[in-house]
Simulated scan of single mutants.
Amino acid sequence: MKKPIRILTAIAFICALAFTARLSHANDTVEAPAVESIVPISPYQGSLKERQRLTGDWAGCRTWLEEHGITLAPRLTQFYQGLSAGDGDHDFEYGGKADLMLNADLSKLGFWKYFSLTVHTEYNYGESVTGAGGTLVPPNTALVFPGMEDADAFDLSSVYFTQHFSKSVSLLFGKINMMDIAASTPFKGGAGIDSFWNLVVI
């Protein structure tokens, strides 16, 4: 019982010495201007206006998943679009896409390094103006797949594994939606959601 008391007494004594030394030199030194420490802000924190993700941290679940290599990116995109000029039906149509992208760093789940899994589910609903005006390129890229003919459409569009060997060499195998790969390219990417709706403008 005496040993812990001695350790605590020694710690208190050291802290007292340090505090006394700081006070004794306070008048002899010129303090540097305070510099605020830069603390990384989570994209899930802050008000609705400040946060990068609308639904926040899901009571800590989102951060826990990321720490274990799993990233979930749900998204809902809505469209109201129609033909403003030219031949054809000039009615405007409302439709949308709900999709979920899952990326898993499998090395954090017990597999080898640089091995990952990507899963993408897509659900289209409502109506689309695809084919309006007789265009060859669909006016709304996001609603082309998995389609919207006479009913809503759902598809597991991507389920593939990736093995990175270097910064420029990687191997992908599984079911791959090439729109997902092209979506990451600057300017012309976005899969009709984060960039231009109609790819013909590129």
Rank of each mutant, 00 (worst) to 15 (best):
V137C: 05
K113G: 05
I70Y: 08
K97H: 06
N198I: 02
A26Q: 11
Y114G: 01
V119Y: 15
S42C: 02
Y80A: 01
F111L: 06
S168C: 03
A104L: 06
S116G: 09
A98L: 07
Y44R: 08
L8V: 13
F79M: 00
G69C: 01
G131F: 14
S157K: 14
A85W: 07
K188N: 08
I70G: 02
S47Q: 02
G190I: 04
S195H: 13
L8P: 11
S158L: 06
V119Q: 02
V200Q: 14
S37G: 01
H25G: 04
F145R: 14
H25K: 10
W112Q: 00
K188M: 12
A98G: 06
H90A: 02
A182V: 12
A85Q: 12
V144H: 14
V169N: 13
S107R: 02
D99N: 06
L156D: 07
F154C: 02
N140L: 08
A98K: 07
W58V: 01
A132H: 15
L156R: 13
L8I: 08
A151G: 09
G110C: 01
L48N: 07
M1P: 14
K3R: 15
M148D: 03
C61N: 06
R75N: 11
P138L: 02
T63D: 04
S84C: 00
L102M: 13
D91T: 11
L76M: 06
R51I: 01
Q163C: 09
V129S: 05
R51T: 03
A12I: 11
V159Q: 03
I5A: 03
L100F: 12
L172W: 15
L172I: 09
M148Y: 12
I38F: 14
P33C: 00
L100E: 02
G46N: 03
D180N: 11
K108W: 08
I5R: 12
G190N: 09
I41H: 06
V169A: 09
P146R: 05
G110E: 07
G56P: 07
E149L: 11
S84G: 04
K97W: 05
G46D: 03
P139G: 02
G69A: 03
Y125A: 00
G131R: 15
F13R: 08
T20R: 07
K188A: 05
